[in-house]
Write a protein that binds this DNA or RNA. Structure first.
Lengths: 214, 214
DNA sequence: TCATATGTTGAATTTTGATTCATATCATGA
DNA sequence: TCATGATATGAATCAAAATTCAACATATGA
């Protein structure tokens, strides 16, 4: 590398590294960190075991690189959607759509991502907390800000904006899982999510009857 | 055992088994299946390694027993709530409340449960699919039936009832996680969940302006 | 009290899989 | 073409953990 122009060797190195990561991603997302051996990754990526250790100092390091790399793609994609021009609803819609898009394009990664952000992260001794989870919380907070702004403008009702963000995120994830389990029956669609989230579920008039309303 | 009355030995056996499961649950939920050794479980439960194999044929079997046993408690608790007397909203409220209660009482189990039902089940080669997940789907379907009944009575709007169930489930899980991560800031409360789920989030009048409504 | 059955133990064995490193292969430039 | 350094290989090593089993303890009841 001479100021900015990577040499062929360097490009090769990076490409090889990328190939390994991609293969590992597929295997991990299929069977989980502990049920995939370095030998398998080596065979599947057409390298020798020893070579893997030229790229990553150990299995955990490989996994970490994988997760962090991809989480950056996710994160910037979602954040970009939230900075889109438009009113609050348009931002939120863009965000839901971006999420669908990026999830669909990285389906292998999603199971691992959700396991790390939502589930209990048992794969790595420590460390993804201080990266993926933080990034995830930044996103949630930014989404909350959009809700808050909508509330200030009296477009949304006065709910805790952070909880709204959590709720929307929860619905999205739930639909995503549903889609995984049954892709044909449940297309994964932004309007579906937004409709259920934003429209009142009660029929007009019925809501006043119940004790839910303050 | 002579028709129904378990002998002392049998009660001992069952109690010991239960103690092992309880210990294992704590350890697994803390550090995950693969990061807990049989020796640790043995030490913590005050048995010898060998003894564990008198109760369970191997580690995976122990884990499976653990998950299935507890999932039954969960399941029957949620199902009972849905069979409560009352109208649709009352059933749904009862269900959300039951979920909160049973989750709080089995916090150790919850992380594992969610990992298995929502995340990818990487711990067990195969088998929990055909048990926990099925039970979970039965619950979802039953919840969907309640929504459907509400829709027939024109109390709820015409959404796909199954998707409503998925959405409510998703919100509940999301709030649960939030509560885990920040117990003081986010009390885990049924009304909160139901409010966000059932009340329109848009201010009156604002909804008509947007392109969301059909 | 003793013989038998039943339950418990944990050191020894086996398995699994991560990691290493001496050797082979390849690319480069003299 | 050959020497040299860089890179790739995978059999051998090592460590961790699952599983086994011969020996030990304890309870039962004749």
């Amino acid at each position: 590398m001479k100021n900015g122009k990577p040499s062929r060797k360097e490009r090769d190195y990076l490409r090889h590294r990328q190939e390994i990561l991609q293969t590992a991603l597929e295997l991990f997302s299929q069977r989980g960190f502990h049920n995939v051996s370095m030998h398998e990754i080596a065979t599947a990526s057409e390298f020798a075991v020893g070579s893997l250790y030229k790229f990553f100092s150990n299995k955990e390091d490989l996994y970490r690189a994988l997760m962090i790399d991809t989480s950056k793609v996710f994160h910037s994609s979602l954040m970009a959607a939230l900075t889109t021009s438009g009113n609050e609803l348009e931002k939120i819609r863009a965000c839901v759509e971006a999420r669908i898009k990026v999830f669909m394009e990285n389906i292998d990664y999603v199971r691992l991502y959700l396991a790390e952000t939502r589930g209990a992260s048992f794969n790595i001794k420590a460390g993804l907390d201080s990266d993926i989870k933080i990034r995830y919380n930044v996103f949630l907070q930014k989404l909350a800000n959009v809700f808050e702004s909508g509330i200030r403008k009296k477009v949304f009702k006065k709910f805790d904006p952070y909880l709204l963000a959590v709720a929307l995120d929860g619905i999205s994830n739930a639909f995503l899982f549903e889609h995984f389990n049954n892709p044909d029956k449940h297309p994964f669609d932004a309007s579906l999510i937004l409709d259920i989230f934003f429209q009142q579920i009660y029929e007009k008039g019925e809501m006043e009857k119940c004790n839910l309303v303050k």
